[in-house]
């Protein structure tokens, strides 16, 4: 999980164009001004590319924060291996 968090930090910095982002489990779209519905699409696409996985819309529509996003990625990676 820590590894995913570090990798995600790099993706977040790139997608949201912020130099300093510290990923905490509680972090959500309301905390980052550039995290909009449009950049959310880019974020999810970048994650799918990085981990070679595909999200279903039912999985991502109820994500409330970064902690839940990390858990989802971790679950999907473990299911695939």
């Amino acid at each position: 999980m820590e590894e995913i968090k570090n990798e995600l930090t790099e993706i977040f910095k790139r997608v949201f164009r912020k130099e300093n982002i510290e990923l905490k489990d509680e972090l959500n779209a309301n905390d980052i001004d550039t995290w909009t519905s449009m950049t959310n699409i880019v974020l999810l696409n970048e994650i799918e590319k990085k981990y070679e996985l595909e999200f279903h819309f039912l999985e991502v529509m109820d994500l409330n924060n970064v902690g839940e996003l990390i858990k989802l990625i971790d679950n999907k990676l473990n299911r695939n291996s």
């Binding site: 779209a29 519905s37 959310n40 699409i41 529509m61 109820d62």
Partner: peptide, 10 residues
Amino acid sequence: NKMTYLQVLK
């Protein structure tokens, strides 16, 4: 919600 498109689909 900020992610309107996902809420609409839901």
